[in-house]
């Protein structure tokens, strides 16, 4: 039985503001997820960093008081509300007349509405996609740590687009063996993701408001 020990204890550790390692761990797990979401919501890089920073700041406060109650909703939905609050605060910030110079975005920012009352199917879709990616990334980290280097290399080539036939030739193994390696990684990934999600859903915190930057 894999009880959701890791994350629950991580979140418990976050209650201790002096537990730097817990915060580093949390940062490592979630920053990229949030940053990617913000970027895909059309927020220029520097601002996205800022939004994520502010979401983290508010989480810092909220998680310090968190109590464990799995019955009260999923962490990813909570985190989504935080992210949306953060983006709303960013939209509401002063100095809006500054022209965005981030050319890759071309000034396109989808208005999300104030707070987390409104629904936005586009945002929700992107959030879910990034959530999926987030879990694949976490799982991939574990795979890299725990599988043989040769299997990881094979899988990396596979992600890069190499066909089974190419891989068989490259690694000097049968196509069936290639399939088997990939299948093992796939099964392991599913297990890992299932575990990660259970851990994640063991979290419970109240949503926090993210203040627009002042000054």
């Amino acid at each position: 039985m894999q009880a959701p020990q890791t994350t629950v204890s991580l979140l418990s550790r976050l209650r201790d503001p002096h537990d730097e390692a817990a915060w580093r761990d949390f940062d490592r797990r979630y920053r990229e997820f949030l940053l990617r979401f913000c970027r895909r919501r059309g927020i220029p890089l520097a601002d996205a960093e800022d939004v994520v920073q502010r979401v983290f700041a508010s989480l810092t406060k909220a998680l310090a008081d968190f109590t464990y109650d799995p019955a009260r909703g999923r962490f990813r939905d909570y985190l989504y509300r935080c992210a949306r609050n953060g983006i709303s605060a960013w939209l509401a910030r002063p100095n809006r007349d500054v022209v965005p110079l981030d050319t890759s975005v071309a000034g396109h920012v989808t208005p999300i509405g104030a707070g987390d009352t409104g629904r936005d199917a586009d945002a929700e879709r992107i959030w879910e996609e990034e959530w999926v990616s987030h879990h694949y990334r976490l799982a991939m980290e574990t795979i890299r740590r725990t599988f043989q280097a040769r299997s990881v290399a094979l899988f990396d080539r596979s992600i890069a687009g190499a066909t089974v036939a190419e891989l068989a030739a490259e690694f000097g193994m049968s196509e069936q063996a290639v399939h088997k390696v990939r299948q093992r990684i796939r099964d392991r990934m599913e297990t890992l993701i299932a575990q990660q999600i259970r851990e994640e859903d063991g979290l419970d915190v109240e949503p926090v408001a993210v203040r627009p930057p002042s000054g």
Binding site: E32, R36, R39, P44, L45, T103, S133, Y136
Partner: peptide
Amino acid sequence: AVAMVDLG
């Protein structure tokens, strides 16, 4: 998931 984030 593992692709580089579009940093712009």
